[in-house]
């Protein structure tokens, strides 16, 4: 018997199913005839639980191929592997959190510039390129959606006050 990535995922999925099945009991029954609102999600969650259990068992009896080796896990390697993805996550969260304040135009330009610079590098030439790219691309996209497709994109408090 061994513990690997799949074991952890399967346990997580089982916990998720448990929480969701529990919350399915809170789904209101308006008393109408026909299928209850909780019926279909319960079926799906039960099947998901069964499949997660199958995955758990399979992962525990499987070979040691995906085994977690805590002693040899190099935290620096893991960080490097997910560095760029983490930067994208972080920048996107910042973009969303400040969207109401900065708006889509300023927020978008800052997001693209920040992401380009963090992923591409901080050399002066690159920074100039990144600022040109971010201003032109977001400017074009913003114009297409605002004027061409008549979508009212978030203006942001800065532009609203200004």
């Amino acid at each position: 018997m061994s513990i690997n990535k799949d074991t952890i995922v399967a346990i997580f999925l089982l916990l998720f199913c448990g929480i969701m099945i529990n919350s399915s009991f809170d789904i209101e029954d308006p008393g109408y005839q026909g299928m209850k609102a909780s019926f279909w999600p319960t079926i799906v969650l039960c099947l998901l639980s069964v499949m997660s259990l199958v995955m758990l068992i399979k992962s525990m009896v499987s070979s040691t191929e995906n085994n977690l080796n805590f002693e040899n896990t190099n935290s620096q390697n893991i960080f490097l592997k997910f560095k760029n993805a983490s930067i994208c996550f972080l920048m996107f969260i910042l973009f969303l959190v400040f969207l109401d304040y900065l708006g889509m135009l300023i927020g978008g330009v800052l997001f693209v510039f920040g992401l380009l610079t963090l992923l591409g590098g901080f050399e002066i030439k690159k920074i100039i390129n990144h600022s040109i790219i971010s201003i032109t691309t977001i400017g074009i996209m913003w114009s297409i959606f605002t004027f061409g497709l008549k979508v009212i994109l978030p203006e942001g408090e800065i532009l609203r006050i200004w």
Partner: peptide, 26 residues
Amino acid sequence: YVLASVILAYCAIGVFALHNIVFDIW
């Protein structure tokens, strides 16, 4: 990285355009 950064921003704008709500981007 240039294409990805620009397209990520475009995804956000495009998704917002669907219902005009920020929740969709989340």
